[in-house]
Design a protein around this nucleic acid. Sequence first.
DNA 1: CATCTAATTAGATTATAATCTAATTAGATA
DNA 2: TATCTAATTAGATTATAATCTAATTAGATG
Lengths: 190, 190
Amino acid sequence: MQLNRIVNFHKTIGDKTRIQIIALLKDGPLHGQAIAGKLGLTPPTISYHITKLRENDIIFQRRDKNTIYFHLNEKKLELMAQAILMIGGEKELDPFKVDDVEKYKVIQNFLDADGKLKTIPAQRKKKLIILEHLVKGLEKGRTYSEIEINEHIKQFHEDYATIRREFIICQFMFRQNGEYELNPKEMWLI
Amino acid sequence: MQLNRIVNFHKTIGDKTRIQIIALLKDGPLHGQAIAGKLGLTPPTISYHITKLRENDIIFQRRDKNTIYFHLNEKKLELMAQAILMIGGEKELDPFKVDDVEKYKVIQNFLDADGKLKTIPAQRKKKLIILEHLVKGLEKGRTYSEIEINEHIKQFHEDYATIRREFIICQFMFRQNGEYELNPKEMWLI
DNA sequence: CATCTAATTAGATTATAATCTAATTAGATA
DNA sequence: TATCTAATTAGATTATAATCTAATTAGATG
């Protein structure tokens, strides 16, 4: 139900602590203790809020040794900014529409604890969810060389060539004279 | 504090009942009992939610005899949709920036119980708040004849000519060969 | 494998928020 | 002015949510 998605998103960002976390992450990723320190709250409290933000796909995370860095998913904010205007006009047109809980489950299933991709999903819908996850962190409107894309993908999977091809086939990215760029239209699964 | 404004806005629309009210009002104004009926809730509950929506300038109201019709302030939704993206980048640049509580007070002071304008404020800031209030209900992107604008203003005040002129001077509207149109940029007081 | 660091979960407490019924207010009209 | 209609306020109840301390888990590293 589209309505619940919108309600949950706004309930999530309708909290001072969580807006502060978003504001902090605007300037780049941070780990939990850093956030707790800056906001004068305890790590469990931050965990609590981070969980809500993550469940709503507003942040994602990358581990570096013992430390988990939280990143803002700016794309989601842009997307939901638009969604306010569509309240009441929901049509549920796209069969590939999927909610955040479902996305979350698929991501859990296909990534191991390191955030490495175990296998590439065969089912189209699941594959789209995973590809969407893998382009998080790439900037919209910026061009990348093939080498940069390969490096980015290698964080998740050895077989960068296949995944790079999937990015193009599924239109998450465009290639133009050897340069890669994110598809600015990012409504794939919403 | 800009942060609180954003938090309150999202807290307000982060509620299923209130999103449903917004969705209903997308199709045109309704009175309290009608909303209560459609949502299966009691009038006091609707009053409670309406108060929150009104405090955040998401709806406004017009009385017709005994019945108060609630209207959606679509401009506010568009405005706040943009605001999500500016979290963390607040500068507080404009001295005419003003919060919803302040607006609300000014509107209370200058309008009588019927919603009629008692006097036109002399102070610029207050005048802007009132003019902004008076253009609520006009559609963006649509053109109006002078007669239509006059009629619209007469709902609030006899001296439509002065107010019509203020709309132009303060750039709430543009005039082009006898037709009037709302200024699509509507960030006046935010 | 013992230990360190960072994050999360469990459980309790406190603070907010949503909803109802009953009482009250405000305006319209016979 | 008496009465009707619609909306709001008061007060109580119940449900959610935010935060803490203490305990636990997961990885990294000597």
